[in-house]
Design a binder for these strands. Structure first.
Length: 816
RNA sequence: GCCGGGAUGGCGGAACUGGUAGACGCGCCGGAUUCAAAAUCCGGUUCUGGUAACAGAGUGCGAGUUCGAUUCUCGCUCCCGGCACCA
């Protein structure tokens, strides 16, 4: 009588076993090999989606594998609980954001439990709880004292109808998403963190992140955007201050034919005061969407300011323009334009009929036609006065020396990275712990008044933040002078919460500091897994925070994440799953139908983790079919009775073949899961082994033992991926200990030995034959055997063999 | 626009360090089982020609390096992620 594979029955049973035995609860055990396995925590939207299932499964597989390697594994879970969707739900359905969020968390926790993830739930962190954000506020006041936070004006998208600040995402084609009114740029005072103080260290630190993908390091490097250049002063006509520009190409100085300033530049503002056309242009610039992508793709426009700068070498007049593509926030807010050697300057010059002067020629004599396109490569200076004939480095130094000597220039290192604006004009976030006093200015909230608790019972209208209508929240006494003062009503960017939650997991109950000495045991994270979309912002802010904690003496780790795995998206019909497109697949429905193991198996099998994964219902069925075959194979095997002890020397050739396959599989799967993280190929190898078992015919009393070894192997190596079925089958195979507590198997090198190998024979690089050859055959023997092959001889014909290439154990290539 | 990544059978993917292209799974085709169907099991399956043996072509497109290129180099096309207030 055979038992049928019934995941509905075994999965809750196995999960109950893990809970009862507290399998995944871990404490700090000094001098043990720890492994901190982490995924980017989810936003509690209420619906677990396939993207979540994918990351969490990848991480769970790694955690279970490391556990079987004997590591002390921590795998926590928590909630990135502040954010806009809660406010949107409140507007739409009238549920307070807090209530909505807590309900979602509870729902999602239940969903996660059914997939069998090995979390230590005692360490759950929820960022919208005062116990958590209290330490964020605490840290902010420390940074305030150290001068690492400051307030300045910054531009936001303003919806004039809803009287609300909009996120970039809420601006669609320049209009508010709900009001449809044209969005305006508005400058308001906001808080910033000085991440730029750490720009160089964040850049240098990338060199040591060997466990990170090159693509992510490269993106961060470019984002930080270090450049070496010179700031130069150009005199301006009339009784005006000199105009400073930053350039990385001082070698093109003699090719400057015009200059451009940002719309917010004081010079532009000054001229606009007397010139209505300029004033209109500046007004027009205010309508540009705040996102950089918009700025870069929009039409480049400008207007002459009607005044000129003086070229510092030739003393010629250079017209000054105001242009919509010059950024006030980068460099000095003004640029010298060299249309001959800069693409954007070239297009702008062509558009407005400005002169183009070539001052660089190619060193290899390539002809350059600057009337066709700009020549932007480095080269040799021409028509350039005292730097004529110099190449880039020499010209750079010559200009720098001369201008520094004259006091009108300085060598400067610039970063593209900007300080982190952390103010949000929203309700559902961590209150910024600052009190504004007429007398004392901006006063940080003292420790004994923390946390500043966000009121959770609010009326939410969607017009502005409800905190602005709550005098009981913002009317306070100044902590310094005691006079009536106003509390800040802005909240933190939610990236602040996600920049340090991983440290909090180490000691989530600590109520005297963000974390305690347990942090030193667990940090840094050994394996961090999350979406590639976080390659820059979240991962850079987290690295920044880690350095702050270090510099405050709270942590000894320089970097938060030792190894990083960035997983691809889950697609359906070639597109990202989203409610808008109506192409979502609900994980819950799939688990109800096939069980958690099937969903886990399909997710890991369908693609390697970094790649986008195309969802396929048929593929899921295939995964389910495999688990059924697997289940049946073990049942059938066990019915054959108890095997005798395996004696390797007594095996016949069929038994040796299966045993070789078993040990090859251990080798391959260990490498695939442990090093390569290619779970798809690990599963494929296990499937091959099961296929071999199915085809295997018993031929001696050792056959059952060899078959047993093969099945034991499949159960153990698949247990990180499909832990429930493997738990059950392991028990069925007669083991006392649960498979989750087993050690990872080690392959037997002797079992891999093969007497004859198949070698490929090519003639002129084309496959012509395969020959069987003894594993220890000499090169000469291999060559002779290859030349002797009938098909090979046919292709050589009467042509002469020029040379023979032999790759030992693999191939022979005969060149004629 | 800029930065990063991707493209391989009908489909998801494999080929790890330049050495057998298509492992494994899905789908499809044929067979077994069944009154029949589902499920299951066995066999086949890149394309073209050939009963077959075998031959020719083939990894987005166009060049190049090499005895040999999915893999390296150069130039394109299309798709995806990020671009600082989505998380």
């Amino acid at each position: 009588m055979k038992k049928i594979y019934n995941p509905k029955k075994i999965e809750p049973k196995v999960q109950d076993f893990w809970n009862r035995t507290k399998t995944f609860e871990v404490d700090e055990v000094p001098d043990t090999d720890k492994f901190y396995c982490l995924t980017m925590f989810p936003y509690p939207s209420g619906q677990l989606h396939m993207g979540h299932v994918r990351v969490f499964t990848i991480s769970d597989v790694i955690a279970r594998y490391q556990r079987m390697q004997g590591k002390h594994v921590l795998q926590p879970m928590g909630w990135d609980a502040f954010g806009m969707p809660a406010e949107n739900a409140a507007i739409k359905r009238g549920i307070p954001p807090a209530k909505w969020t807590y309900q979602n968390i509870s729902d999602m926790r239940n969903q996660l439990d059914r997939i069998g993830y090995g979390y230590d739930w005692r360490r759950e962190v929820t960022t919208c709880r005062p116990e958590y954000y209290r330490w964020e506020q605490w840290l902010f006041t420390r940074l305030f004292d150290k001068g690492l936070v400051y307030r300045k004006n910054a531009i936001v998208n303003w919806d004039p109808v809803d009287q609300t600040v909009l996120a970039n995402e809420q601006v669609i084609d320049g209009r508010g998403w709900r009001s449809d009114a044209p969005v305006e740029r508005r400058e308001i005072p906001q808080w910033f963190m000085k991440i730029t103080d750490y720009a160089q260290e964040l850049l240098d630190g990338l060199e040591n992140l060997d466990g990170w993908p090159d693509s992510v390091k490269s993106m961060q490097r470019n984002w930080i955007g270090r450049s070496e250049g010179i700031e130069l002063a150009f005199d301006v006509e009339g009784d005006r201050d000199p105009l400073w520009v930053y350039t990385t190409r001082p070698d093109t100085l003699m090719g400057v034919t015009y200059m451009a300033v940002a719309a917010e530049h004081p010079l532009a503002v000054e001229i606009a005061a007397q010139n209505p056309d300029i004033s209109n242009f500046l007004q027009e610039c205010k309508k540009i969407h705040a996102a950089e992508a918009m700025l870069e793709t929009m039409e480049k426009k400008g207007m002459p300011l009607g005044i000129s700068a003086i070229h510092p070498i030739t003393s010629e007049k250079i017209p000054l323009w105001v242009a919509n593509f010059v950024l006030m926030g980068y460099g000095t807010g003004a640029v010298m334009a060299v249309p001959a050697h800069d693409e954007r300057d070239w297009l702008f010059a062509k558009k407005y009929g400005l002169p183009i002067t070539q001052v660089i020629e190619a060193t290899d004599g390539t002809r350059i036609d600057i009337s066709e396109e700009a020549y932007v490569s480095y080269g040799r200076s021409v028509n350039s006065d005292f730097i004529d004939g110099m190449e880039f480095d020499e010209a750079f130094e010559a200009i720098a020396d001369r201008f520094e000597h004259e006091g009108r220039g300085r060598r400067t290192i610039n970063y593209r990275l900007r300080d982190w604006g952390i103010s949000r004009q929203r309700y559902w976030g961590t209150p910024i712990p600052i009190i504004y006093c007429d007398k004392c200015g901006s006063v940080p909230v003292p420790d004994d008044q923390l946390p500043v608790v966000l009121p959770e019972k609010v009326e939410f209208t969607g017009v502005g933040s409800p905190l602005k209508d709550m005098p009981e929240f913002y009317e306070v006494a100044c902590p310094q002078c005691g006079n009536p003062a106003n509390r800040e009503t802005d909240t933190f960017d939610t990236f602040v919460e996600s920049s340090w939650y991983f440290s909090r997991y180490a000691s989530p109950d600590c109520d005297t500091a963000p974390f305690d000495e347990r942090e030193a045991y667990w940090m840094p994270v050994d394996q961090y897994t999350g979406g590639i979309e976080h390659a820059i912002l979240h991962l850079l802010y987290s690295r920044f925070y880690q350095k702050i904690f270090r510099d405050l003496g709270l942590s000894s780790a320089d970097e938060p994440f030792k190894n990083l795995l960035t997983q691809g998206m889950v697609l359906k019909d070639g597109a990202k799953m989203s409610k808008n497109k109506g192409n979502t697949v609900d994980p819950q429905g799939m688990i109800d139908r096939y069980g958690a193991d099937t969903v886990r198996l399909f997710m890991m099998f369908a693609a390697p983790p970094e790649q986008a994964l195309e969802w396929s219902d048929a593929g899921v069925q295939g995964a389910f079919r495999f688990l059924n075959r697997f289940w049946k194979a073990v049942q059938l095997h066990v019915e054959k009775g108890r095997p005798t002890d395996l004696v390797a020397d007594m095996l016949n050739s069929a038994e040796k073949d299966l045993r070789r396959k078993t040990h090859q599989t251990i080798f391959k799967v260990s490498d695939d899961i442990g090093r390569r993280y290619t779970f798809n190929t690990a599963i494929a190898a296990s499937m091959e082994l099961l296929n071999a078992v199915t085809r295997f015919r018993h031929s001696s009393d050792q056959s059952l033992s060899v078959e047993r070894e093969a099945l034991n192997t499949i159960v153990v190596v698949l247990s990180p991926i499909v832990p429930h079925i493997c738990h059950e089958l392991w028990e069925l195979l007669g083991h006392d200990r649960a498979v989750v507590d087993e050690a990872w198997p080690i392959f037997d090198e002797k079992a891999l030995w093969q007497e004859t190998l198949e070698i490929v024979v090519q003639v002129n690089g084309k496959l012509r034959s395969r020959i069987a050859i003894a594993a220890d055959a000499s090169k000469e023997d291999v060559e002779a055997e290859a030349l002797n092959d009938e098909n090979v001889r046919r292709f050589i014909g009467d042509r002469k063999v020029k040379k023979t290439i032999i790759v030992p154990g693999r191939l022979v290539n005969i060149v004629v």
